[in-house]
Design a protein around this nucleic acid. Structure first.
Length: 592
RNA sequence: GGCUCAGUAGUUCAGUUGGUUAGAACGCCAGCCUGUCACGCUGGAGGUCGACGGUUCGAGCCCGUUCUGAGUCGCCA
């Protein structure tokens, strides 16, 4: 036998008994149960197989090796005398005639035990990610990711999309997040930027006539991390379609995503087409969020009229929002925790009262509400044994706090939270403009590439002062699943005339458009098709499918919160020679 | 950058009101064990209690500063 293996460690069954085989893998565990009897668990990508050691010669070899050493074992397959029904290979074992060390593990103490790596400190896991990934529990998320990406590719190709790669070294874009910059050796003082998204390239592909484009695109943004947001880089299923409307884009994803979610997800039910469409304003009004979790059937009601003047200080002169949960059974302790959690996350307080089984108003701010009992019961539609959560503040703040309360309350009420499913919805009709918090002036709400609903005409009216610019909506949409924003997309503004008018609203002119987006502006001046697209986040999708709360669990080699790769030690200092070539002078160095 | 929480053995953690020699589990080492499968039993090694400073007769514990990590807000067209 010259090859390294004849079978994998998840292949041998009773039918192989008597065959001479060669297996290779990592020594996951060694159990020595007698003078000359021991069991080695051999693990490879596919599974594990038990090697039984019965001779002094073999025992001496095994005894001298550390766990996680890679060995190959030649020997005969034998039926076990005591079988393990929990293992696919549990009915057989291999009796070795020859054991060869292929890759020695030099350490008898590992940073953590491989099959319990998920319990270890994350810093250690990231530093020794190659050990962490040996854990089948960790590895399975990466395999899931591969399967999902592969399915997405197949489905997009099936729908007539071409996979086209776009540059990684490109130009800095003036809008959006902070760029990652790459110094240009041949052009002192100039920089490339890593793309925040292939946005402009894909639109240029449309102008080039590539009807349908997609790409599993790496995107780079130098912004701080979150549990669900990897620092630095992430992947999007980026797509764009010529001559497409919003409905055409929706139809593609409504066809592509549900089967993949149902097949690979921890829940095997996914919304079927068409997904619910909710206007941005309605979403804020009814769910207190532009990414509502539709698995929760609770909605936000306005209670300003009935409770604004009830005498409770925080409600005075404010908008009051209420969420009613019927058949409520959580404990007082849970309610207190709920309110505390809302305050931590939203930065605003939540208030409450209940209707007890007799229909009396009790608990929380009951004493302020009791006087207005009849009006409140009627207005909010209260029934005995219901809980009423309340938030107050300026309209936007009251809504957002109610949105946080809704999510936390849902988690407390199994009867209002149908968890085991993927509930998709589209959030549509985002406002085109908003008043900037810092500037106090009109700014683009999302990105300037979206087509305003009403086109040139509505912009002209706004410019003439006949239409309030804040009421203009864009053909801009988000795809939301289980409270997670999966992607943003838009029908693009492909008409240079309308682009100029859109920019005029935020006090910019044609020269600014040309200066900021020269390639796109010029390309559109040579005849561009109407086009639309979207870019669902691959990492977020896999996270939802895996049922993980941390995005690091579904990325093969993740960085930590501070955008450091602890395994590769990136970022790192470089040779002075490299800096000189790049015309970079470092004035301040972090301590090593 | 703000706020919250955490940092004690290789790993995960406990450590009472500030009081003798800082404990457990897993891992590691040695011995025993002929059917284990999270093998078992016996014994052993292993600690700058993140760092610095302070209060105190006495600090893992109290106070201050600082470092590191996680979460969250800002930020993420």
């Amino acid at each position: 036998m010259t090859q390294n293996r004849t079978h994998t460690c998840n292949e041998l069954r009773l039918e192989h008994v008597g065959e001479k085989v060669k297996l290779s893998g990592w020594m996951e565990n060694v159990r020595e149960v007698g003078q000359n009897l021991g069991f080695v668990i051999l693990r490879d990508f596919y599974g594990t197989t038990q090697i039984v050691v019965e001779t002094e010669e073999m025992m001496n070899i095994v005894h001298g090796l550390n766990k996680e050493t890679v060995i190959s074992v030649e020997g005969a397959v034998r039926e076990r005398s005591s079988k393990n029904k929990n293992l696919p290979t549990g009915e057989i074992e291999v009796l070795p005639e020859k054991i060869e060390v292929l890759g020695k593990c030099r350490y008898n103490e590992l940073p953590f035990q491989v099959n319990r790596s998920r319990d270890a400190d994350e810093t250690l896991r990231l530093k020794y990610r190659y050990l962490d990934l040996r854990n089948p529990e960790v590895k399975k998320n990466i395999i899931l990711r591969c399967n999902v990406v592969s399915s997405l590719r197949a489905a997009m190709t099936e729908h007539g999309f071409l996979e086209i790669t776009t540059p990684i070294l490109t130009a800095s874009s003036p809008e959006g997040a902070r760029d990652y910059l790459v110094p240009a050796r041949k052009h002192p003082g100039k920089f490339y930027a890593l793309p925040q998204a292939p946005q402009q390239f894909k639109q240029l592909l449309m102008a080039s006539g590539f009807d349908r484009y997609f790409q599993i695109a790496p995107c780079f943004r130098d912004e701080d991390a979150r549990g669900d947001r990897s620092p630095g880089e992430f992947y999007q299923l980026d797509m764009e379609m010529s001559f497409a409307t919003q409905d055409d884009v929706f139809a593609v994803l409504e066809d592509v995503l549900p089967p993949i979610f149902a097949k690979y997800g921890v829940y095997n039910t996914a919304s079927s087409a068409p997904f619910r469409r909710i206007g941005f304003r309605e979403a804020m009004e009814v769910y207190g969020s532009d990414k509502p979790d539709l698995r929760i059937d609770l909605t936000v009601q306005d209670a300003t009229e009935v409770l604004g003047g009830c005498g409770f200080g925080p409600f005075e002169g404010n908008t009051v929002k209420a969420i009613v949960a019927s058949d409520f059974s959580a404990t007082r302790k849970q309610i207190d925790k709920l309110c505390a959690d809302v305050e931590i996350q939203a930065g605003e307080k939540a208030y409450w009262f209940r209707l007890d089984e007799k229909g009396e108003i009790v608990g929380g701010i009951a004493k302020f509400v009791a006087e207005h009992k009849d009006a409140v019961v009627e207005k909010l539609g209260l029934t005995p044994n219901c809980f009423v959560g309340l938030t107050a503040g300026k309209k936007g703040a009251a809504q957002k706090t109610a949105g946080v309360l809704r999510n936390k309350l849902g988690a407390l009420c199994p009867n209002h939270f149908n968890k085991e499913q993927y509930a998709f919805c589209w959030i549509v009709d985002f406002p085109m403009y908003e008043i900037g918090e810092e500037s106090g002036e009109l700014e683009f709400c999302h990105n300037p590439f979206s087509m305003p609903n009403g086109g040139a005409e509505v912009l002209e009216k706004a410019i003439r002062g006949e239409v309030d610019p804040l009421t203009i909506t864009a053909f801009q949409y988000d795809l939301v699943c289980n409270g997670v924003e999966l992607s943003s997309g838009a029908v693009r503004n492909h008409d240079p005339e309308i682009m100029i008018k859109a920019f005029q609203m935020v006090r910019l002119g044609e020269e600014d458009v040309k200066a900021k987006f020269p390639a796109m502006y010029n390309a559109f001046c040579y005849g561009a098709p109407p086009h639309a697209g979207i870019a669902p986040g691959v990492d977020r999708m896999v996270m939802l499918l895996a049922g993980e709360d941390s995005i690091r669990e579904i990325i093969p080699f993740p960085m930590n919160k501070n955008a450091q790769d602890l395994m590769m030690d990136a970022p790192s200092f470089v040779e002075q020679k490299q800096l000189d070539e790049l015309h970079i002078v470092v004035t301040e160095k972090e301590d090593e």
